[in-house]
Amino acid sequence: MRGFLYLTWVEMLLFLREWQAVFFSFVFLPMLLFLFGAIFRTHPGVELGGFQQGDLLLPIPLAIGIASNAIYTLSGPLAVYRERGILRRFQATPLRPYAVLLAQGVVVYAMTMLAALLLIGIAKFSFGLSAAVNPWAMWGAFTLGSTALLSLGFLLGSLFPTARVTYAVNSTLFFGMIFLSGTAIPWELLPPFMKGVAQFVPLTYVLDLLKHAWLGQGIWPLSQDLAVLSGITVGGTALAAALFRWD
């Protein structure tokens, strides 16, 4: 536990010293929000059904941010550490695999959370948010979505011997998920076959949960989303810790 806390502290420092990850979370994601805002504005026929524009926009950059941070920002450093022999050095200490994984997970979760708060602030002032949302439902949806994707990140960060392989797998998975989950392309526009494929993409459930939370509909009725994402979280984390390779 001590080791985990110290490692989390160091990983937090290292995250803040790497401008790429900071840029993505705090500059690129807000830009993405404005981009989707601009796309929506060009469709004057869109029926908002009593919601503000920000309510509908927010889940998309949020889902992209969660997925991207969980997949790239989490597993990338682990692959580099492994390649450079840093993990091997940790292997010779009392640190256990789950502590190494969770330290990364906590940092990525915290940074994504900050990015989410920034997005919410921007959405409120630029696009308007309706007041009906339940902050606990939003937090719950964000957290469960994060832990599910983080556990996929743990797996990606545990399995592959080199950074090159890790990045290749990461990119395939990330873009696959973005396009097959109704995130980059609205769910309503997907043909029936693609909707069938989307059932197997974890991000689909994350986005669904976020949308419902942001529209103030509560997340408890979405038992399928909750079950799938909890299952991925527990199974993915346990598998990653068991298969973790130090070198």
């Binding site: 001590r2 080791g3 806390l5 110290y6 490692l7 502290w9 160091v10 420092l13 290292l14 010293r17 790497e18 550490y81 450079r84 022999g85 840093i86 091997r88 050095r89 940790f90 010779a92 200490t93 009392p94 640190l95």
Partner: peptide, 28 residues
């Protein structure tokens, strides 16, 4: 035990003092 490996590295952007505090913190 304490270990110094032949081929090893640390994070590029960790300071010497931070590395010592980290490793001191990994042990009871």
């Amino acid at each position: 035990i304490g270990v110094q490996l032949q081929a090893t590295a640390l994070h590029d952007r960790i300071r010497v003092g931070e590395a010592l505090r980290l490793f001191a913190g990994l042990y009871r």
